[in-house]
């Protein structure tokens, strides 16, 4: 799958349910696909020292991040028998309860899509230079670290 070029995976603000629904709808013409799997990352209203996370402000080293997304995509295509794959991540402000990560994989059969989605999400968390500023209700903040 060497013909895939790095794309811009970032979308400003939350990833809307309309955008996700449209992505699914676009695949209805690809009738060799028999299984889709979707991962949605949602901003959690964590409570830390009696303060609640109201939003996360995402920033990134965007060039490096898009290259890493591209490498993860290539690695997933080599490892799993996938028909297509889409990765979108928010940049900027995303409120608690909104979607910040959308990973969408499709294959002829179901067995490929379960391990594929886990592989991709774990790789994103470990390798993509994205940073999250957790903004609390009182406008104070702390920096998120993936666990």
């Amino acid at each position: 799958m060497k013909n895939h070029k790095p794309k811009n995976a970032f979308r400003k603000g939350a990833i809307t349910t309309e955008f996700i629904a449209n992505s699914i709808a676009k695949h209805q013409v690809k009738t060799s696909i028999g299984a889709h799997n979707i991962f949605l990352g949602q901003v959690r209203a964590d409570e830390i020292n009696a303060k609640k996370v109201a939003a996360i402000d995402y920033t990134a080293h965007e060039d490096m991040a898009n290259l890493k997304f591209h490498e993860i995509r290539e690695a997933a295509f080599l490892r799993f028998d996938l028909s297509c794959m889409h990765i979108y991540h928010s940049i900027g402000n995303v409120n608690a309860g909104e979607i910040c990560l959308f990973v969408f994989v499709s294959s002829k059969r179901r067995k490929e899509v379960f391990p594929a989605i886990e592989f991709i999400v774990e790789e994103i968390k470990a390798k993509v230079p994205i940073f999250g500023k957790e903004i609390f209700n009182d406008q104070s903040h702390q920096w998120k670290v993936n666990s």
Binding site: G41, Y58, A60, H61, M64, A65, H89, C100, L101, V121, I124, K125, A126, K127, V128, P129, I130, F131, G132, W143, K144, V145, N146
Partner: peptide, 10 residues
């Protein structure tokens, strides 16, 4: 050169 703190994507 870029200095990158711990990643927090997803």
């Amino acid at each position: 050169i870029a200095l990158l703190p711990p990643f927090a994507g997803g």
